[in-house]
Design a protein around this nucleic acid. Structure first.
Lengths: 343, 343
DNA sequence: TTTAATAATGCAATCGGTTGCATAAAATTT
DNA sequence: AAATTTTATGCAACCGATTGCATTATTAAA
């Protein structure tokens, strides 16, 4: 194994001090341009690579941002991560990604690992069942910036990056009402989570404005996954008075539900209209194509990392930022467009 | 900001040497059990956290594994990564993940970043257009283990973790033939990549065995994404002699194609049967449900990281391992089951 | 009791950059 | 030409854990 080249090797060969080499490599203003060129040339020649550990050890910073997500393999999260990776990569930062698998317990363990890994900042989208902020306190104590995105915790002075879920929920529901629907069943996730709670708020608001009474029986809390979608269809089939529309807070769940409904001979959108959420690619490939809310996942990831890095660099202070809200958008497709009314 | 606790603080308070503290924390056999308890208790009490940089610097290892994937946000890759993260987390390793976005250029840059980050090992699934091994040479030179998974490069003595794509391609095609199909169009990706080349081999083998001549015109190289699926449907519609079956090397593409075909009034599976690849959740929620090859993505991720860690720990030497092949499986669903033959 | 073997701990160098402060060299001003 | 300012470089301590080797304490064998 070839010996690793250090700044001392460069210093020796050029007959200058390691301090000068270090400063030259870091483009320090006090160093003569010619010296910089000399050092960089020699560094390339010898195949020098900086030792981040020595550097981090001394500088007490890591150029690493931690990310905790509920799961890696969901369309939304993998897309958010894709955006994050892109920006981090461009800015010379590393990402340490871990998943809580929707469990607070694992999230706590992950937070601790991140803390011990001395990430410079932490980006978090919380698990389904997280009900405590406790495990993030160490970060605040050490003044390590913490930003929540998508699924956020409130009342803790941490900035958050979100979409306006209330507005999105309102638009989805209102659209269904405009299409002449009034018995709208809302399928959602854990209502402790802002994303679902807010969508519900929007749903209720739209009902209220249109003088449709809200019924608890038309609000179902589920796991919002593929299986849940199938079960929802089963339950709907068994209902004496079926809804005429569904607002489902996740496309994959919605699509699974539509698929099952169709198998049962229930027509979408004529018997039941459906609006999903996320604008997952799957929304475009089923019949009928799914009306949904476009979720700017990639942008959210990019902005989250960008904000974090700017804050770390001191370019932008986040201390007074409460929330950054991104634009979402209703995309109307066939699943909510009533083609022919059963006369 | 509270001062960071070091082993020196613990040593001072207990009136022992830092060396003993270090050994105690690392459970060194030469240290008395009582001392270990003492040290660990004090460490907890003071809120000590190990400084990985000091440790890495000294040990010249990082407990970090680099991963380069074509994209983060595809079903297969995000699932592989989920498996990887799970094992790495359990084993106390960190993952640095980066995406090449299907570009060799970016892949080269990523490899360099990984090299400079001094990952202990590297896991790679190559980009669509990667045709050189050059950028991985530095790793071999420094004896940093390199494992390819899914999309591999051959002839370089690096172990790889794959499924038997040839067999899978054979089974998919053979199944279609068993269903009475003989004009089977194969939609695939860049044939430079083993996954697609091998699936093609399997396809050809199945044709050969059944004495169906292979036609170049029935082999289409595409981007295998959603858009490609739509285009394929367009092209099929325009064909004078349409195929009676499709073997598409990716579910999302297959599903998009089926959706477009149906819109054109072409029935699946009666007019055209379809087999996809991956067993993406989307395969279960469209009508007809998609026959596909189950791809053990999560397991692949788990095994890749597990193998890497075992190799790094010396538990298992990979130098003589050429390839680990995982089991894939044909899952027959409706898209290839001919329900009623047009009499 | 003395000697040998074993167990437990400490000393001090090391990993490789970074940075405050001092100093030397060059440029500018008086 | 001397004094002052500016520019460039070097010295040496430092970040915090690890580990080969030496040393001391303890136990077992002679």
């Amino acid at each position: 194994m070839a010996k690793e080249i250090t700044i001392y090797d460069i210093a020796n060969q050029l007959q200058i001090s390691p301090a000068t080499v270090s400063r030259a490599l870091n483009n320090h203003p006090a160093i003569n341009e010619k010296t910089k060129v000399l050092v960089n040339t020699k560094a390339d020649e010898l195949g020098y690579r900086s030792n981040k550990f020595a550097s981090n050890l001394r500088k007490q910073s890591t150029s690493t941002i931690g990310v905790i997500v509920p799961r890696l393999n969901s369309y939304i999260m993998s897309t958010v991560l894709a955006g994050m990776e892109k920006v981090a990569n461009e800015e010379g930062f590393n990402l340490i990604i871990s998943q809580s698998l929707e469990s607070q317990k694992k999230e706590i363990a992950n937070a601790q690992t991140m803390f011990n890994s001395r990430v410079d900042g932490l980006l978090v989208s919380v698990a389904f069942d997280t009900d405590s902020f406790e495990h993030f306190q160490p970060f605040l104590k050490k003044k390590i910036p913490l930003i929540f995105f998508d699924r956020i915790l409130e009342n803790n002075n941490c900035p958050s990056i979100v979409i306006d879920n209330t507005k999105a929920g309102y638009e989805a529901t209102n659209h269904l009402i405009q299409q002449g629907r009034s018995n709208i069943l809302h399928i959602t996730g854990n209502l402790q989570r802002n994303v679902y709670a807010d969508r519900l708020k929007g749903y209720q608001q739209a009902l209220l404005e249109n003088e449709i009474p809200f019924q608890k029986a038309f609000l179902w809390e589920t796991a919002l996954n593929l299986e849940a979608g199938k079960e929802v269809a089963q339950r709907i089939k068994a209902m004496p008075n079926r809804p005429d529309a569904l607002f489902i807070a996740s496309d994959l769940c919605a699509v699974a539900c539509i698929s099952a409904l169709k198998e049962m001979g229930i027509d979408v959108p004529n018997d039941i209209s459906v609006v999903g959420f996320n604008n997952d690619p799957v929304a475009q490939v089923i019949a009928p194509k799914l009306t949904t809310i476009h979720y700017p996942a990639k942008e959210m990831g990019e902005i989250a990392v960008k904000s974090m890095i700017n804050h770390l660099k001191g370019t932008m202070n986040l201390d007074k930022t409460n929330a950054i809200t991104l634009r979402s958008e209703l995309i109307v497709r066939e699943s909510s467009r009533i083609i022919e009314h059963s006369a």
